Computed example of a mutant assay.
Amino acid sequence: MGILMDDNIHAPTVASGPTSGVTPPDFSKLSMPELMQQKERIEAELTALSSVLSSHGVNMNSSLTTFDGFPRDDIDIAQVRTTRVRIIHLRNDHKDVMKYLEKALHAHFAQLQNAPAGESAPNGTSAAPVALSSAVDDSTGNPGALGTPFARVNTVESASPAAEAGLKTGDLIRSFGTVHWLNHERLSKVAEAVQQNEGRPLTVKVSRKTDGATEAVEVDLQLTPRRNWGGRGLLGCHLVPL
Rank of each mutant, 00 (worst) to 15 (best):
P18W: 05
G144M: 14
S160T: 09
K205P: 03
L202Y: 04
G69E: 04
A163M: 09
H94Q: 10
R227G: 15
T169I: 09
K99Q: 09
S28N: 07
R152Q: 15
P241V: 12
N154M: 14
R41T: 15
N92D: 13
P161D: 07
T169E: 15
Q113D: 12
M98E: 09
N228G: 06
T83M: 00
H238F: 12
N8I: 05
V240S: 09
G147K: 11
L90S: 00
S134Q: 14
D96I: 05
G118S: 04
M98H: 07
F150S: 03
A104V: 06
N197C: 11
A127D: 06
F150A: 05
N114I: 07
M60Y: 00
D73A: 10
P201C: 08
N114E: 12
A159L: 14
K209E: 09
N123C: 12
K168Y: 12
N59C: 03
G124A: 04
V130E: 11
V80Q: 02
S63Q: 10
F109G: 01
L172C: 03
Y100C: 00
T169P: 02
R152W: 08
V194E: 04
K95Q: 10
I88L: 11
T140K: 11
V97T: 02
M1D: 09
A159V: 13
S28A: 14
G170S: 07
R232I: 14
Y100K: 03
P33W: 01
